[in-house]
Amino acid sequence: MGWSWGFGLVALVGIAILVYVVIRLLSKNGGSDPSSTSTSTQPDLTSARKILDERFARGEVTAEQYRERIRVLGDGR
């Protein structure tokens, strides 16, 4: 009779682990949107632009280099 509470506790922990694993698997997949994984592998052009702007402001790149790199990033300004 002393073991009955132990089996209930083990079952509860097992269910909690199962729920945790299912949630982790679904969150890694990004839900039902398959395009979310393909966009995360592409470089973030806005952050690249911010870095370039900061480097230009600090004087690490010349105006000519800045314009060329903006053109390469596809901004076209």
Rank of each mutant, 00 (worst) to 15 (best):
M1G: 15
G2N: 09
G2H: 08
W3I: 15
W3V: 13
W3F: 14
S4A: 09
G6L: 15
G6I: 15
F7N: 07
L12A: 09
L12G: 07
G14D: 02
G14I: 03
G14Y: 03
I15L: 02
I15Y: 00
I17P: 05
L18M: 05
L18I: 06
V19S: 01
Y20K: 03
I23E: 02
I23M: 08
R24D: 06
R24M: 00
L25N: 07
L25M: 14
L25F: 13
L26E: 09
L26A: 12
L26D: 10
S27T: 11
S27D: 14
N29H: 15
N29I: 15
G30W: 01
G30K: 02
G31T: 04
S32D: 13
D33R: 09
D33L: 02
S36C: 08
S36Y: 00
T37H: 11
S38N: 13
S38E: 14
S38Q: 14
T39L: 12
T39E: 13
T39Y: 09
S40E: 06
S40V: 15
T41G: 09
T41F: 10
D44N: 00
L45Q: 04
T46E: 14
T46K: 06
A48P: 01
A48H: 06
R49P: 05
R49V: 06
K50W: 06
K50Q: 12
L52T: 04
L52I: 02
L52R: 03
D53A: 02
E54A: 12
R55T: 03
R55G: 04
R55N: 07
F56G: 04
F56K: 09
F56L: 02
R58M: 12
R58K: 15
R58E: 09
E60C: 10
E60P: 01
E60G: 04
V61L: 07
T62P: 01
T62A: 02
E64D: 13
E64Y: 10
E64R: 10
Q65I: 01
Q65N: 02
R67K: 13
E68V: 01
R69G: 00
I70N: 00
I70V: 13
V72C: 03
V72S: 01
G74N: 01
D75W: 03
D75Q: 05
D75A: 05
R77H: 09
